[in-house]
């Protein structure tokens, strides 16, 4: 049904493409769309983090909200990523591809983390949401850049390191992905519930997409 709806929509869109392009590019449209979006999530001043780091053993930092035997940034293989990309009946999952050298990625990460915190535990009968940040940085930059960055931001969302994927792997994530970052995959709890975006995302639009899977 969803696929059918989308196909019909795309056909209509092709017909009215020029008008729509103008409409989409019109500044007032964009303003309207993002009027309700909130300012970036204030990590550094997040009271939650301060509280944890103050009350726990000072050697254990706030980022260890995850179990301490799991490394802060776990290295994974593409086969492992493919498992994460399978629909999971218990969790709605957002897989975000990023790199420390990618400015738009870093700018959008707080919005993902905010969603992870807000919908990480199941509410109102919905399934919980899990955000996974997948770093595509160069391998040589993991120790020097990726881990310190994740530490500093205090992400509670899971962070893994994949490295630069191969051509066939980029295709396997999504056939429309050309390879630019940031890129985001949203997976629902049922087979076929899947959305892919090769662009910077904002909290409000992410929430709108995720909600269609959380509260179908």
């Amino acid at each position: 049904m969803h696929v059918f709806f989308r196909t019909v929509l795309i056909t209509i869109l092709r017909l009215i493409k020029p008008c729509l392009a103008l409409f989409l590019l019109c500044p007032s449209t964009l303003q309207l769309l993002y009027a309700s979006s909130s300012p970036p999530y204030p990590f550094t001043t997040n009271p939650h983090i301060t509280t944890i780091s103050q009350t726990q053993n000072p050697k254990k930092q706030a980022f260890t909200t995850r179990t301490s035997n799991v490394p802060l940034v776990e290295s994974i293989t593409f086969a492992h990523l493919q498992e994460l990309m399978q629909p999971n009946p218990d969790t709605v999952r957002i897989i975000n591809f990023w790199a420390t050298t990618c400015r738009p990625c870093i700018e959008e990460m707080p919005d993902f983390e905010r969603l992870h915190r807000e919908y990480g535990t199941a509410k109102e009968g919905a399934k919980p949401l899990q955000v996974v940040f997948v770093s595509l940085d160069f391998k040589r930059d993991v120790e020097s850049n990726v881990i310190p960055f994740v530490k500093k931001r205090g992400f509670t969302a899971r962070c893994v390191f994949l490295g630069a994927p191969k051509s066939t792997e980029i295709d396997a994530v999504d056939s429309t992905w050309t390879g630019s970052m940031p890129a985001t995959l949203i997976l629902g709890t049922k087979a076929g519930q899947r959305m892919f975006f090769e662009k910077k995302m904002h909290y409000e639009e992410l929430k709108d997409f995720v909600k269609t899977y959380l509260f179908p």
């Binding site: 989308r6 929509l9 795309i10 869109l13 092709r14 493409k17 729509l20 392009a21 989409l24 769309l33 429309t176 975006f197 090769e198 409000e204 639009e205 709108d208 997409f209 909600k211 269609t212």
Partner: peptide, 18 residues
């Protein structure tokens, strides 16, 4: 408004893909 936003986002992605 949410539905409109979703439709517009699909529209935008379809336009780029084409």
């Amino acid at each position: 408004k949410n539905i409109l936003a979703v439709v517009l986002m699909f529209a935008a992605s379809a336009l780029y893909a084409a």
